[in-house]
Design a binder for these strands. Sequence first.
RNA 1: GCGCCCGUGGCGCAACUGGAUAGCGCAUCGGUCUUCGGAACCGAGGGUUGCAGGUUCGAAUCCUGCCGGGCGUGCCA
Length: 657
Amino acid sequence: MSILAELRQRFVAPLQAVVDGEVDTLLEMIKPIQDPKFGDYQANCAMPLGKRLEQQPRAVAQRIVDAIDIGDICDPPEIAGPGFINLRIRDDWLEVQLAAASADDRLGVSRTPTPSTYVIDYSAPNVAKPMHVGHIRSSVIGDALCHTLRFLGHQVIGDNHIGDWGTQFGMIIYGFKHFADRAAYEENAVDELARLYRAVNQLVDYQRSRGAAPQLERQIFQIEEQIAEQRGAEPTGDKKEKKKIAKALRRSESQLVDARSNLAAAQKRISAIEDDGELFTLAQQHADIAESVLAETAALHAGDETNRELWRQFLPACQKDIDRIYGRLGIRFDHTLGESFYHDRLAPVVADLRRKDIARESDDAMCVFFDGQDVPMIIQKKDGAFLYATTDLATIQYREETWSPDAILYVVDHRQSLHFEQLFETARRWGFTDTQFVHVKFGTVLGNDGRPFKTREGDTVGLDGLLDEAVRKAHAVVSENDDAKQASELSAEQRNHVAEIVGIAALKYADLSQNRESDYVFSYDKMLALRGNTATYMQYAYARVKNIFARGDIEVEKIKRSGAAIRLSDPAERALGLAVLQFSEALDDCIEDFRPNQITDYLFELAERYSTFYNQCPVLKADTEAERESRLLLCDLTARTLKTGLSLLGIEVVEKM
RNA sequence: GCGCCCGUGGCGCAACUGGAUAGCGCAUCGGUCUUCGGAACCGAGGGUUGCAGGUUCGAAUCCUGCCGGGCGUGCCA
């Protein structure tokens, strides 16, 4: 049951009486009202209809109101302003709906009558590299979409398209062959491989930095000269010209800042090696390490048996490492089919696209071209190697063959927009026209310097460290709060448990509640906030409900069976009850555009209304037994809605905190 | 150069896709504990939605032009 759906249903006949043809777009103009003083819902269709029918909008509104049969749900509709039809839901109708929701373990949220099959491609880290904050958004958003779609009755296939076939394996293969500590590897493969990755990466960086540093110095010199020239330029007096010069100057200055910081970073990497006797020796022994790493990667791809065997050995360790983090985040995938899985399909895919004239050769590379775009999508390099785009096409082909999805969602950073536009267009030309391809894009997580957050030795935090910090901070708050109670009620073990859940929840909520496309600067304060619009606020509301039941030694099921009714006599009760019934609308809003923040907004408002209710309406000490039971049922509904809603976001609750 | 995205109180973000007096969280100031958990509640201040036009009953939202910022842009993923 959705109130909105019910209201829209009632408007169909009256609207058809007023206009010919389809009324769907008019029905969409029925929506929740913003200012509660006008009512609960409003229908805005009379204004455009007035225009179309060349009648007074208010007269059209009146005709609709005269024709509608809605008295059981609403008070008599009111026509206001230019032609708004304002609807206020009747309390007795809300009470009946709440009773139904109370008796339903799905809180009255019905499954979709038209289930679709969704493949959701999310998380997709490169294994064998440490995971960092940049990975968290895709994982958390994708996970929330999986849960929500599934709850609504859709078929969902969550697929983690891990990077398990890239250069990082060339690095650890090379490292393993040349300076592995076999004993350490036997002891703990994950740690040893991580060490090898870091070491080889550092050496490769060193080599690159040595090459880049002189170039950067030259570049800085050139920019400085350019800036001097731009500053000395005689203004022509033309306003436009002046602005142009000023803009160019600003750009040069920002380039200079970038170049200097790049140089500083390169020098830092160089001295990190050269100040370390052991590493410096290694660096000299492996002077051409970058080329060697590429060669190892190429050999792996070409089928070199030694490298394949090493890769097969390493992969489970890498998998184990990322699984540890997914375990902490509570994220599970239906499939983990990485790049390597599609390796054998790549050549046939290119051949097929070429045969169908979708791809053609250009500058010795195999390309797909698009009208109005000068950049093609390259699916095979001139050296014969395949690319990201090729794998993505093979992946689409596999998913279509295997699951015939109605939609494939890619939860990926918005910087890849062009890639996905081209990919989707190619897939359509290739014949996959019945599938909806969606790039569910999100903004980049930036570091304090305003540049994309990246792992750099020492100066940034990996995902593990971030999770630890979140939990540590939550633990401090949990302990402080518990200590402040008259008698603290959590054991050390319980405190750890609560801190883990509250800390991880805060982290997830920071991403889910702010799902806009714009980038944001990473900040501990933001990600670990435990006050205001945070998961903690909802968890706290939930724990307070549970506390009421514990205090009063209440068995909810017993009250439900007794046939006790929910009565909305206080405004705070009514506001809360209405919010409870709007849960399904929030879920619909979420999947409409795949925006989990619709759910966080809803849950925050629900929890807010509960807090108001909690302050104004005594439950256990209610005036009458009937009122007490009614309020207990309302509390139970709120708690279940909070718990269910949070669970769809991948966030757990605790009974005590 | 071309393409895409963004600009909303001091900061961070909403606004149900064109609806009524633009909301919320931090922060600031004031109030609420003899009553179920103060991780709470109630209230106040703070805005020409970057600027200028246009479209219409009605614009933060759509169109045009500026200003400012970000991202992408043939052999990375």
